[in-house]
Computed example of a mutant assay.
Amino acid sequence: MKDYMLEFFPFSYFKINSKGSILDSSKRAHALFNIPLDLLTIIHIDDQPRALELLTSFAHNEPLTTSLRLRMVNGSFIDFTCTINWEQSIGHLVCIEKTPLVS
């Protein structure tokens, strides 16, 4: 995704590598999360096995979708539907709030 598009993209988007390191993220993601270096640090401990499944899915050609609870800026956890699509070893992860948040 072009860098200028990340400012206007209406969902939380993370560009990650196969180890879960965040390489880039959308403005919406910055508004909702304290953007860490590692994606797993904002994922609820009980959901980390599903998150690891996303990270190891880079061999698949099809997008993979799962539900994850992510830690918001205020420390609470919110349910998101997260879909990842891999472009070789770079993952494009979009997370959409199950109940839209007002910001």
Rank of each mutant, 00 (worst) to 15 (best):
N74G: 07
S18H: 09
M1V: 15
S89I: 14
D24N: 14
L101W: 02
L54M: 12
K98M: 13
Q48N: 05
L32N: 10
M1C: 10
F9R: 10
F58W: 01
K19W: 08
E87P: 03
T81Q: 13
D46Q: 12
K2Q: 14
A31M: 09
S26P: 04
R50H: 13
A29Y: 04
S18T: 12
E87H: 06
A59F: 04
F80G: 04
I78C: 05
R50Q: 13
E97M: 07
N34F: 09
I90N: 05
T65S: 12
D38L: 11
L39Q: 03
L64R: 06
S67G: 08
F58N: 00
V94R: 01
S26I: 01
A31D: 12
S67P: 05
P10T: 09
P49V: 03
Q48P: 07
C82H: 03
D38Q: 14
I96S: 07
T41M: 11
P49D: 08
I90D: 05
Y4Q: 04
M72I: 02
R50M: 12
I16E: 01
R28P: 09
I42L: 14
A31K: 10
V102P: 07
K2W: 12
Y13R: 02
D3L: 06
F8R: 13
L54N: 03
L64Q: 12
I96V: 15
L37W: 07
T83R: 03
D79P: 02
R28E: 15
F77M: 06
H60L: 11
V94I: 15
T56N: 09
M72C: 06
L52C: 10
I35L: 11
S25W: 06
S67I: 13
F33P: 05
M5W: 10
S21H: 13
D79W: 13
H30N: 15
L6N: 07
R71G: 03
P10I: 09
L93E: 05
N85F: 08
I96N: 03
Y4G: 00
R69M: 07
R50T: 11
S18R: 07
S103N: 12
H60N: 11
H60K: 12
F11K: 04
I84A: 01
N61F: 09
K19V: 06
C82Y: 02
P63N: 07
L64A: 05
I78D: 03
I43Y: 04
C95Y: 02
A31E: 11
D79I: 04
D79V: 03
P10F: 12
P63I: 04
I43Q: 06
M5L: 15
L101I: 14
Y4L: 06
L23R: 01
Q88V: 07
S18F: 04
L54E: 03
I42N: 07
T65H: 02
S89Y: 14
H60I: 01
L32P: 02
S25V: 08
K27Y: 10
Q48W: 01
N61V: 05
L68S: 01
L68D: 02
F8Q: 13
S76L: 14
D38R: 11
S18W: 00
G75A: 13
M1D: 10
I90R: 04
H30E: 15
S12W: 02
S12H: 05
M1E: 09
K27H: 11
